[in-house]
Simulated scan of single mutants.
Amino acid sequence: MSYGDYSVTPWEAKGKIDYDKLVEEFGVEKISEPLLEQIRKITGDLHPLLRRRFFFAHRDLGLVLEDYLSGRGFFLYTGRAPSKAPMHIAHIVPFIMTRWLQEKFNVNVYIEIPDEEKFLAKKVESLEEVEPYVKQDILNIAALGFDENKTFIFRDSEYIGRMYKPAVLVARHINFSTARAVFGFDGETSIGLIFYPALQIVPTLFEKKRPLIPCGIDQDPYFRLQRDIAPRLNRFKTSEILAKLAWGLTGPESKMSASEPETAIMLNDSPEAVKRKIMNAFTGGRATVEEQRKLGGAPEVCTVFHWYTLLFEEDDKKLEERYWACKTGKLLCGECKAELVKRINNFLSLHSKRVADAERKVSKFMYDGKLASEMWNWEFKT
């Protein structure tokens, strides 16, 4: 939906997002310090994405923790809609958070691969255009370390026989005026995309436990609808932990886009491509070395520092040192970029090896693992 100078939908985000206003408009809550402390007590630590408030808002996170402590448990659900380009590092941020939550709470994870979404949203011209990237996206996700016996990865087009009946039940409860108000549908929207939210909601019905969804705040509209419908289907309302949108390399208000490769670090980028992109990235530096030494930089608007904050510096003390070294002119942009290039390339090299390993065991996530085997026999029952 559009909010003055910016707009946020599940398919597109434009402009400089006012997250305080978005929290108010969406009706979510910021994650409080007491909630973070409760997670820390249960897990023994906090993931940097939580500590640094990149995951900053929630719905009913307190109820999820109550369910866990009471022994009722919960489950995790997230997903990825393949497009006509490879995944980039911003795409894997929600999956990294999801994997950490699975490890710390020892719960099931359901990962939907809606291989039809981009076609219905008119972002690609054919279903076949997406196909090469579906398989690679699944491998990229499986490579992040999920428990193969507690994780089910499924494609909509393949699993639709199990999804269709509950999707029809969900769709029955969503009228067009509500869908239009929530998603901003208009006269050019395909009727397939209007039905699609029902499919997004189905995995929240897989278990008679509370679902927790780690996702970007742009995906929240789906689950606002689910919260209206779930009690009628004898299921829990979804809970969420919601992330801000990661910056692209062209500035603090930009987004990584697979269709604009220079804005993003792709998971299959070569070391040379990573170096070129990072060395050309927008920073908060000054025009000359002399000015940088004298006046210092502005890490608050630096895309390079942003990615240290998200994935490439786990140590809070070292991150703070880097911040102040930039701020006081002791650290030059070229030095900071060169170090990030090294860290990203190390990450991508390790990820590539894990993808090769995932090829050998991906069937356990999709068909042969304990949870996968159970889900191929799943039927929706109230």
Rank of each mutant, 00 (worst) to 15 (best):
F185T: 13
F146C: 10
M266R: 08
R322H: 02
G62R: 03
L193C: 14
Y196D: 06
I42H: 00
G329A: 06
E359P: 08
S363T: 04
H173R: 15
K277P: 14
E117Q: 12
R286N: 12
L310P: 08
T9D: 00
T151V: 14
P86K: 05
C326G: 11
E66D: 15
R52K: 07
N140C: 14
R51V: 05
A230G: 05
F55K: 07
L193W: 09
F95E: 02
K277Q: 05
G27M: 11
R155C: 02
K275F: 02
L101W: 07
F54Q: 04
F176N: 09
V134T: 15
I17F: 13
L348H: 04
K122H: 13
C215M: 02
K317C: 05
E321D: 08
I265P: 08
A85Q: 09
G251R: 01
G27E: 13
M163N: 07
K21Y: 02
G15N: 05
K135Q: 14
P271A: 03
F282T: 02
K84C: 10
P86Q: 03
D115H: 11
R53Q: 14
Y308W: 06
A167I: 02
E29C: 08
E321A: 04
Q200M: 15
L332K: 07
F223A: 09
K30V: 08
I141P: 04
L233G: 06
P231I: 00
E128W: 04
E335D: 15
A198M: 13
H306V: 03
G44H: 10
A287M: 12
A358L: 11
I217M: 15
V202E: 02
G369E: 00
H58T: 06
A143Y: 05
P211E: 00
I278T: 03
G216R: 04
F119E: 06
G71M: 15
M163W: 07
R286M: 07
V362D: 04
R53G: 12
R286E: 14
G27C: 13
L311Y: 04
W11H: 10
T43M: 05
F195Q: 06
L332Y: 15
F95Q: 01
F75R: 01
E148I: 10
M256E: 02
F154T: 02
I113W: 05
S32W: 08
T204W: 00
A287L: 12
G187C: 11
D269S: 06
R293M: 05
N108M: 12
S83D: 09
D220V: 13
E314T: 01
E12G: 10
E33R: 14
D45T: 14
T309Y: 01
E313M: 06
F26I: 13
K41E: 12
G145E: 01
E117F: 03
F54E: 13
T328C: 01
M1N: 07
L340I: 03
R293S: 14
